[in-house]
């Protein structure tokens, strides 16, 4: 910035006259702080005006005391004002309102936070319920499927009665000869002990020839206790038996642990 040009523009004379806007005044002030040259020019201009205005002043002694008397009166009044409790109520009210407002703000913030967490919980519950519904739907589908399977016209029902080791046990075999499927309803069997599994056998009676059809795996986990097995023995099965075998099953049935047995009735 060209300081000389700035000074020559005449802006500082207008500054001293009080003819600039607030923004311009601030700008001049800022520049005067930064540039001693500008400040000294302002002071010179001011001095010229001071000199000129002084010539017109009334020739008297400029005593401060009458002014001092006037301002101390107004100061006294102010002191009285401060002591006058009634006059400060608006100030207190203002502060009280501010405090109340702050408390209110804080309270609303807390309300908002707790509502948010409640909403979160509700959303989670909702998700759980939706999952349950979908699980129920799946379960219903399965049940319908099972019912349809058992109602098939090709199904033979073979009740398997409890044997010596567990006389109260029972089971039912649903044998679809066409699809070579065997459905075992094992609801009536006790839960197998740890390390053991039920094994289903197809039997020919004369001579007694057992053939393993499969294991009732995950007995405890299966809710409806209906197991689907393949029975490729076609019409060769004359009876079905279920024995308790060590995990993984056995090659030959342990007849001492024969839980249920049922004979296929000739059709």
């Amino acid at each position: 910035m060209d300081i000389k040009q700035y000074i020559d523009s005449g802006i500082l004379e207008l500054y001293v006259a009080g003819k600039l806007s607030d923004a311009e005044n601030l700008e001049v002030y800022k520049l005067s702080v930064e540039n001693p040259e500008i400040l000294s020019e302002i002071i010179s201009i001011e001095n010229a005006i001071l000199e000129l205005t002084k010539t017109a002043s009334p020739k008297t002694t400029y005593n401060f005391s009458p002014i001092k008397a006037k301002i101390s009166i107004s100061e006294d009044k102010k002191v009285i004002d401060i002591n006058n409790k009634g006059s400060n109520w608006s100030q207190y009210l203002g502060w009280a309102a501010t405090v109340l407002f702050a408390i209110g703000l804080f309270w609303m913030y807390n309300q908002n936070e707790s509502l948010k967490s409640e909403l979160e919980v509700v959303i989670q519950e909702n998700e759980k319920l939706e999952q349950q519904i979908s699980e129920s739907n799946t379960s219903l589908e399965k049940s319908k499927e099972l019912l349809a399977t058992l109602r098939d016209k090709n199904i033979s029902v073979i009740p398997l009665g409890g044997q010596a080791v567990s006389p109260t046990s029972f089971a039912k075999a649903y044998w679809n000869t066409e699809q070579q499927k065997l459905y075992i309803d094992a609801q009536g069997l006790p839960e197998p002990p740890n390390g053991f599994v039920y094994q289903v056998w197809s039997l020919k009676l004369d001579p007694l020839t057992p053939t393993s059809i499969g294991l009732l795996n995950d007995f405890n986990g299966d809710e409806n206790k209906v197991f689907t097995l393949n029975n490729p023995n076609a019409n060769g099965s004359e009876a079905f038996g279920i024995t308790l075998e060590p995990d993984g099953g056995s090659k030959a049935p342990n007849l001492e642990q024969l839980y249920t047995l049922g004979v296929v009735s000739p059709s």
């Binding site: 500054y15 001293v16 006259a17 009080g18 600039l20 607030d22 923004a23 005044n25 601030l26 001049v28 002030y29 302002i42 001011e46 005006i49 001071l50």
Partner: peptide, 8 residues
């Protein structure tokens, strides 16, 4: 200072 000099 936005009002200018004190004298002003």
């Amino acid at each position: 200072t936005s009002k200018g000099r004190f004298f002003t």
